[in-house]
Design a protein around this nucleic acid. Structure first.
Lengths: 340, 340
DNA sequence: ATGCAAGTTTGCATCGTTACAACTACTCTT
DNA sequence: AAGAGTAGTTGTAACGATGCAAACTTGCAT
């Protein structure tokens, strides 16, 4: 009733351990008849190769490491990404291990650990920075990884990214088209590349259309929603108040919506709200927000596929995916009711 | 520039590999001076033990498997639980690996896989069922695990659970105390133990206080929020409509709030809303909902601690934790404003 | 028969670690 | 002074898989 090993099968079939190993690997040097016989016995005994032994011998762990933000995260961003990643890895024998991404201190610690003890064959991480230390380190070592988000390094590397610049441009066009002139964005921190893309896109497109664009440095997506709401209340009471708010994230959008209500302004009338959404929560809210959907499960899948190809040896030059944004801003229930 | 191994250190110190191994493990049979010397050299060379080799030799993987629901999940439930789990494991050398929890087909598949190839030393899972196949299987094998949620098996096993019955009772008392008489709960599916506890708690306490309690079987937390809202709209238009809705989850609470608004009813006046909350999102909503906070990060931490003790050999009998609920129902911003 | 290649199969070493039994050097006992 | 005891260290053999070189088969031409 012990776990069967190659030796068990070797004894059962009268073959050598090496032969069994090769047979199971489908090595063409082993006669087809032998391979079939071995496969049959292995199947019957319920043989499963020992991962630890394979890993020790080959140096490959069949594990993919995912760096996980340890801070608070309010809507189901992570879950969707992980689910997508797992579905891409499903059936490949790879599993996902999680390591903490200590975002505010030595962000490359987890990466260094993986490089040191080879606990994974590849790495995935989000919230990529413009000159991300992890990207630099991993690229230098030629270690397979996929960043969720681009960098501005000259060296190409594998990435999967949502076209945030296009999203921001579309939002600007949408709002200016509705007659808005003072655009405010609650954006990611500027250290993150996608924060830069969003800033650039909104600023360029907005100004070209003659609008004023405002993007606070200090009030960003990682601030607690209460603080965002409080800041917005103050900001909206000044005479030069924005007439449109773009929120890159669902919770800040809810905060913005609350702030508007608090000071007696109406979304859709006094101020337009635009948000990126990853869950169907907005469909339940009567917040009068225009949203564009970002499919993070699909992103996770693409990341998984890309990483597998990178691990298989494809060069990083050819492994960059820029997901086009859905440029249609769907009004939520309230907006739909109001305008139709 | 090769990775240092025990052999490297042995050569550097002139000791035998075995001695070095023992020294690093802090074995008292090795002289304190030798231990210090070895530690110093290991440190200097940047030695890190090879996990695969340790695992092959000892049979322990230093990995904890987490079964992750692959379905949709709308608010940050998973992220908080994982973050808590990781913080408990932090510094112990254990890492977390994720396996898919295929909730609607062969739920024990992932467990069987772990039992077969010993890819983890312990398992964690949520959404525990009354007679959970995974609990049965793992208990039979004496394999360390912690279930998030209890079962009704006679065999004791390690678990961490939130006292949902107490939550439901408190909610019933709170609502009846406010004069409500017809309580409706949007609950988890009855197959899950916590669904049973919630049903029982609300029914017992509500009926004892003379209220009518209604808990639909078919409209539960895993239904898409739109469907919950649609069902509630229909239900609320019937003459025997509930005057209080208890939502065990944030998204259903938002759906309920939307449904009320759709048909012109006001939360807090016509119908009271109560919800369990795990994120601060409600503080931003003007939904007039009374909430009780469930700290899932803490739950994750407790699960991690418990699992480590179970792996260390503590018997399951002594490893059950029932988290007391926060029985204070905080009104959200709107409710607070309204009531003074 | 002999040689030789192609087609199969085998033994050995190895990955890095730890368990086990054995060995050395030294002190203590009687 | 011989034997027992102890503290400290060592060598060898695993764990289960795989890479490599060598060794068997065959068949077939010489």
């Amino acid at each position: 009733m012990d776990k069967p090993t190659l030796r068990t099968i070797a004894q059962a079939t009268g073959l050598a351990v090496t032969t069994v190993s090769r047979a199971l690997a489908g090595d063409p040097r082993i006669a087809a008849r032998t391979r079939a016989a071995v496969a049959e016995v292995a199947q019957r005994l319920g043989y499963v190769p020992d991962r630890a032994a394979q890993r020790l011998r080959t140096g490959r762990s069949k594990v993919v490491a995912l760096l996980l933000n340890t801070g608070h995260e309010y809507l189901g961003f992570t879950h969707e990404l992980i689910a997508g990643l797992m579905s891409a890895l499903n059936g490949t024998g790879y599993s996902v291990a999680m390591l903490p991404d200590l975002i505010d201190e030595g962000r490359d610690a987890a990466v260094r650990e993986v490089l040191r003890n080879r606990m994974a064959d590849g790495i995935v991480f989000s919230r990529t920075e413009v000159f991300d230390a992890r990207v630099r380190l991993l690229s230098e070592h030629g270690f397979p990884f996929v960043s969720h988000g681009r960098t501005e390094f000259a060296i190409p590397h594998a990435f999967v990214d949502y076209d945030n610049e296009a999203f921001a441009r579309a939002a600007a066009r949408h709002l200016v088209g509705r007659g808005r002139e003072r655009l405010l964005m609650i954006a990611p921190q500027g250290r993150f590349t996608f924060g830069q893309h969003l800033r650039y896109g909104l600023t360029a497109e907005g100004r070209a259309a003659g609008a004023v664009v405002e993007i606070p440095e200090d009030i960003h997506l990682d601030r607690p929603p209460e603080e965002i709401a409080a800041w917005l209340r103050r900001r909206l009471m000044r005479p030069d108040r924005p007439d449109a708010i773009i929120c890159v994230g669902e919770v800040p959008a809810i905060a913005a919506s609350a702030a508007l209500g608090d000071i007696g302004l109406q979304a859709g009338r006094d101020v337009d709200l635009v948000a990126k959404r990853a869950s169907p929560v907005f469909e339940m809210l009567r917040a009068n927000v225009f949203t564009a959907f970002e499919d993070l499960r699909e992103t996770g899948r693409l990341i998984g596929d890309t990483l597998l190809r990178r691990i298989a040896g494809e060069p990083p030059e050819t492994l960059g995916i820029l997901q086009p944004p859905v440029i249609e801003f769907t009004p939520d229930r309230e907006a739909a009711r109001r305008s139709g």
